[in-house]
């Protein structure tokens, strides 16, 4: 039984993925499937990590694998609401230099709206 799940929501034109549980080498394929499911309809993706309890490098690798593809299509993967212990893993590898990581989901969604109005 997997202890990880992804919830799907939309906020305007933005696809929000809510991550729950523990993201490791066993569950990373579920995140990958969720991102693949989004891409045909929206490359504006916000990851809400409020209920993400754990991440290992396998989870980080999924974001890594798709970020350039999504940006080349004019979109982005923005990451919001990470718990401090999960943010620390992103930070350890320098991910804040590569990804837009913000405090709240509303901020992340707003950044897409600001970008499209410019």
């Amino acid at each position: 039984m997997s202890n990880f799940s992804v919830g799907f929501r939309t906020s305007g034109s933005v696809q929000v993925l809510e991550l729950n549980g523990e993201l490791d080498a066993h569950t990373a394929s579920e995140l990958e499937a969720a991102i693949q499911k989004c891409i045909p309809s929206s490359v504006r993706i916000v990851i809400n990590g409020q209920n993400l309890q754990y991440i290992s490098s396998a989870g980080l690798g999924v974001f890594m694998a798709y970020i350039e593809d999504v940006r080349e299509q004019g979109g982005d993967i923005k990451i919001a609401e990470l718990q401090p212990r999960v943010f620390n893993v992103f930070d350890l590898l320098g991910f804040p230099m590569l990804f837009d990581i913000v405090d709240s989901e509303a901020d992340a969604v707003a950044r897409f709206e600001t970008a499209s109005s410019q």
Binding site: A28, S56, G61, L92, L93, M97
Partner: peptide, 22 residues
């Protein structure tokens, strides 16, 4: 290098780095 890995769409290779840093 995270920027090179992102450009190449590579998903792995960070485990040893995490172990050494922690």
């Amino acid at each position: 290098n995270i920027f090179e890995f992102a450009n190449q769409g590579r998903a792995g290779g960070f485990g040893v780095q995490i172990m050494r840093r922690l």
